[in-house]
């Protein structure tokens, strides 16, 4: 059970450390420049615009592959986060990026399907994912990405993931 009297700054730093433990060790997430904003258990993936994300310089537009990768990362991080939440809050599992062996294990993507709804502008992008089904072996995740306007997503995706097995 969560401790009602746990000091707020300790709750925040422990949760932020858990997000960092998932994200910071993945070189590709760093290379793309993706970071995660956290409000309680809600994660928003943020992809700040940079020149190397451009696919077509004539428009210009974000590369479709960048959009796919952004959505996949948002989905995978949300899934890892959601699957460790209960153990993390009860203190059974304390992920720490600085301690080897406590990094959360990542699920493997089985399939990932992206709808491109409009072209990605040369601006910052945001994504939120929802774990539709969290299973012991298979999970299903939906992701939506937007830029200026939350109500006008520029891409959405759903994917299936194989959960890490054997502890």
């Amino acid at each position: 059970m969560a401790d009602r009297n746990e000091p707020l700054d300790r709750i925040k730093s422990r949760r932020n450390a858990a997000v960092a433990a998932i994200v910071d060790r993945v070189p590709y997430i760093t290379w793309l420049g993706i970071r995660f904003d956290r409000r309680g258990d809600e994660l928003t993936a943020v992809l700040p615009f940079s020149e190397k994300l451009i696919g077509n310089p004539a428009l210009p537009a974000l590369h479709g592959g960048v959009t796919a990768a952004f959505l996949e990362i948002a989905g995978l991080v949300e899934l890892t986060w959601a699957s460790m939440w209960d153990d993390m809050e009860s203190g059974r599992f304390v992920p720490d990026a600085t301690l080897p062996g406590t990094a959360p294990r990542l699920a493997k993507t089985i399939d990932f399907s992206v709808d491109y709804l409009r072209s990605g502008l040369p601006r910052d992008s945001y994504a939120r994912a929802r774990v539709v089904r969290l299973g012991r072996r298979y999970s299903s995740v939906q992701v939506e990405a937007w830029q200026d306007n939350r109500g006008r997503p520029f891409a959405q995706a759903n994917g299936h993931f194989l959960m890490p097995q054997g502890g």
Partner: peptide, 27 residues
Amino acid sequence: RADLVGDPRTGVIHGGVVSALMDTCGG
């Protein structure tokens, strides 16, 4: 490339890179 790795334990390249490559090639 090391900076495109998705799982540092194994050195496997991130699935997103595979997606980007397939998207580009498809186009």
